[in-house]
């Protein structure tokens, strides 16, 4: 079971200077619109619906935060990968 869960989630490290701000959250929510089932983002004990910008913002994730993306449906793995890439690319920000 533990093994199974880890396949459906990935950890990321927020590297961009401004953290998970509105425009970044909008990009995440934009990607998640395409998902088949629910996608969540977890920051410690907080869990947000990744399709809602506001919910994502309430995770309060400045630079340096470790987040977990979690998908419910294995066929959403491409969404999971896209989200990880987005964060790693600093949401397209310069620094």
């Amino acid at each position: 079971m533990q093994n199974h869960v880890s396949k459906l989630s990935k950890q990321v490290y927020i590297v961009n200077a401004l953290g998970l701000h509105a425009r970044a959250a909008a990009q995440i929510a934009g990607i998640v619109q395409e998902s088949r089932s629910a996608v969540h983002i977890i920051n410690n004990d907080l869990k947000a619906d990744a399709s809602s910008i506001i919910d994502i913002l309430t995770l309060n994730s400045p630079q340096g935060t470790v987040l977990t993306f979690e998908i419910e449906n294995p066929s959403d793995h491409n969404i999971l990968d896209a989200l990880v890439t987005l964060v790693e690319n600093r949401f397209g920000e310069e620094n």
Binding site: A22, R23, A26, A29, G30, D49, S51, S52, I53, I54, D55
Partner: peptide, 16 residues
């Protein structure tokens, strides 16, 4: 102008 794109996305946000 993409801050406005974000605002547009917010208009239809579930939580709002």
């Amino acid at each position: 102008a993409n801050i406005y794109e974000t605002h547009i996305a917010l208009l239809k946000d579930k939580m709002l």
